[in-house]
């Protein structure tokens, strides 16, 4: 039987196959043509993919899966590394530079906004706060 989980995953794959890849293609196109507008379009498509992903999560009463989180953070890390390497090598144009900064800013602001709306400001911090185990009989 196709479970709600399977259907949710299918929708997520479909969203990223269309919007994610379109966003990537527009970003690359923008870098090649040195066009900030085209890069912005790519960024908007990637944000749209995230929004659609979150809507699907809401409809199926689920959050991001651990695998998705790892993939997202990994991709973000690779992008950051590439961006920094580009800046250091001095081969980036100003359009590339601002396009990259726009993408990172939107992703970071979006990420914080998502956590804040989903878990609340305090709860969002707790997602990263490592709780140390305190035993019941520690006397304190």
């Amino acid at each position: 039987m196709s479970t709600p989980n399977t259907e949710r995953d299918l929708l997520v794959f479909s969203i990223w196959a269309v919007l994610g890849f379109a966003g990537l293609a527009f970003l690359l196109e923008g870098f090649t043509r040195d066009s900030y507008f085209v890069c912005l379009l790519g960024t908007a498509l990637i944000v749209a993919a995230f929004v659609a992903h979150i809507i699907v999560n809401f409809l199926f009463q689920q959050g991001f899966r651990p695998g998705e989180t790892v993939l997202g953070i990994g991709a973000f890390g690779v992008l950051t590394f590439t961006f920094i390497a580009g800046v250091l090598s001095g081969s980036m144009s100003m359009v590339d530079y601002y396009s990259g900064l726009t993408l990172f800013s939107i992703l970071i602001v979006g990420f914080i906004a998502y956590l804040s709306t989903r878990h609340g400001l305090r709860g969002a911090f707790s997602r990263f706060h490592v709780k140390t185990a305190v035993s019941e009989d520690s006397g304190r």
Binding site: F13, S14, A17
Partner: peptide, 10 residues
């Protein structure tokens, strides 16, 4: 059916 969904949107 499953892969067909992704093939369809593509």
């Amino acid at each position: 059916g499953y892969f067909g969904v992704i093939q369809s949107v593509l």
